[in-house]
Simulated assay, not measured.
Amino acid sequence: MTGARDATGAVAAGGAGVRPSRALAWAELLRLPALFTVPGDALAGVAAAGARPGPRTLLAIGSSVCLYEAGMVLNDWADRAEDAAERPHRPLPSGRVHPSAALTAAGALTAAGLALAARAGRPALAVAAPLAATVWAYDLALKHTPAGPVAMAGARALDLVLGAATTGRVRPALPSAALLGTHTLAVTTVSRRETTGGSALAPLAALATTALLARLTARQPTRLPAGRREAASRGLPGLSATGRAAPATRHPGRRPAGSGERLAAALAAAYAATAARPFLHAALNPSPPLTQRAVGGGIRATIPLQAALTARSGANALAVLVAGLAPLGRRFARKVSIT
């Protein structure tokens, strides 16, 4: 047996040493800490549609996770030659994961994501299909072009719409999708200089974007989504993921609108605090380490932004659930890099 390289580059030959090293390599390839930024997309989409999560929401989350991880693996497969020069410690250039295995995994994850979306219903599949196409187009063709950040932003926006599609109410989720996509556009633009640094403009633009998004998400809109407005008129908390009225006794955590605005404001502040500081540091000193730290901060800030968007839609308990994913992501990030 030839063995495998561990995180320090040492060879763990044979026996019990191979499996942990191989598992760590795949964890790095999949960027497991970033995985916690995925469920909030679908949940924010359901909340924006004026519904509450249901079985189809779980299928949408599973689809999102598979498509997101397919993109992570395909990204490294497409960049394996570039990483060999700039980041030789990554799983593919270091030889800890074979390129053919990575490409096979990307294909299998994409197929699984589309299958789960199909189980969630035709509207969900109608969103998941262009989402999968965008992921592959970004990694294989668009990443190093001016259209790259736009494609990545579109993918994240579609992921939120995927959650809303399971309710049959896509249009109310479009403003939230646009806000989330704008954040992703800013982070992706910064990431284009992740290994070389040298640009203060992108972090400055991302900092300004963060301030704007925090302000926009800090308050609930004047009019809640139609589903919540209709349910409120009937004394109900909202609609189920299938579009039917949800019994009030089965939706915990409902509070007056004022508390929703306070929660949205607090979560928007948490979003700004997570993203703004590393963006500012990268703007003042656009070195590769600080630029990488800014990208990581921007990725982590996705969770409080999703939570703020959820609270903005009036789903307080669901917003708290989404926000709870952030500490889990930080815990895993201590062992595996998020970028």
Rank of each mutant, 00 (worst) to 15 (best):
C66Y: 02
A205R: 15
S199D: 15
S199Q: 05
A202D: 07
P53G: 12
A269P: 02
P175C: 06
A308W: 03
T310W: 06
T291K: 03
I303K: 04
P99I: 01
A269C: 09
R156N: 01
A108M: 13
G258A: 15
P288D: 12
A84M: 11
P221H: 03
T210N: 13
T184L: 01
A173Q: 03
S313P: 07
L162V: 03
G329S: 15
G95W: 00
H183L: 15
A108I: 12
R169T: 04
S287K: 06
A273W: 02
H183F: 11
R156S: 00
S287W: 10
V320D: 04
L114S: 07
R80M: 05
A273D: 14
V336E: 04
D159Y: 02
R254L: 13
G260A: 11
G9L: 10
A120L: 12
A241M: 04
L328D: 08
G197F: 10
A319I: 01
D76Y: 07
R312E: 05
N75C: 06
G62M: 06
A202L: 11
T167R: 06
S191W: 04
S176V: 03
L116M: 14
A164D: 10
S64N: 13
A47R: 08
P304I: 10
L160Y: 06
L158F: 00
A205P: 03
W136R: 04
F36M: 13
V170M: 10
A202F: 09
R250G: 13
A272F: 03
I299A: 02
M152I: 01
L109C: 07
H281W: 09
W26Q: 13
T209F: 05
R31A: 11
A211N: 12
A272P: 01
A186F: 10
L114P: 02
R330V: 08
A200V: 04
A42C: 15
R192T: 11
R255I: 09
T57G: 07
I61M: 14
A10V: 10
P20L: 03
L158D: 00
L267H: 11
D6Q: 13
H251W: 15
Y138M: 02
L318C: 08
P53K: 02
A153F: 03
A218S: 14
V46Y: 05
A246M: 10
G260Q: 07
S63D: 03
A7S: 14
A4M: 09
R87P: 05
V161E: 02
S21N: 09
D76P: 07
G181P: 07
P91G: 02
